[in-house]
Amino acid sequence: MKKSNLLKLISSLLLLTLANQLLAAQYEDDDEPIDETIEVIGNKLEDELLPGGGFFYGGSSSPPRSGGSNTQNEKDTEKDTEKEFKENVEVAHSTCRAYTSANYASALKSQCLSGGQFTIGSNGLISGSVTLDAYNQCKDLQEAYRDNGYDSCAVVKAVRIKAC
């Protein structure tokens, strides 16, 4: 082996040792290293756990936050996520409306036609007469609740889509 080549090898080995020491020193700094990767993955999982999660009567929910990307694949993934998010918002909105309708129908039956109108007479017997006027009044109240519910669903949908 030529002398010059041997010197090159030795200097490279020295540099390598120095590099290892510097790297070790970086990790042994007083400040505890924070595993940012785990934090980011944690957030992502939390978002993914609630894909269709939405608030029927309030609040807002944002789609998974983008961490920034520059490749075409990542951009496509972002678009897919956004699309999926919007679809989930639509599903949540439809479900919200469906429950509002179901609650209205249930209230008509349980409160307007029977439960709410029974009275105990002086003879101790329960009478369940329902007048048309009482039924209409009860129905008007339940309709007002229902229409409020529909609008609440619409507001939540708009808030969520805007946050997308």
């Binding site: 999660g53 939405g54 029927f56 309030g58 609040g59 429950y99 179901a102 249930s106």
Partner: peptide, 15 residues
Amino acid sequence: KRGNAVHLGDEHHDN
């Protein structure tokens, strides 16, 4: 949570 909505998760109803 009213009526059927009782089966939904808490995240569907604020607070």
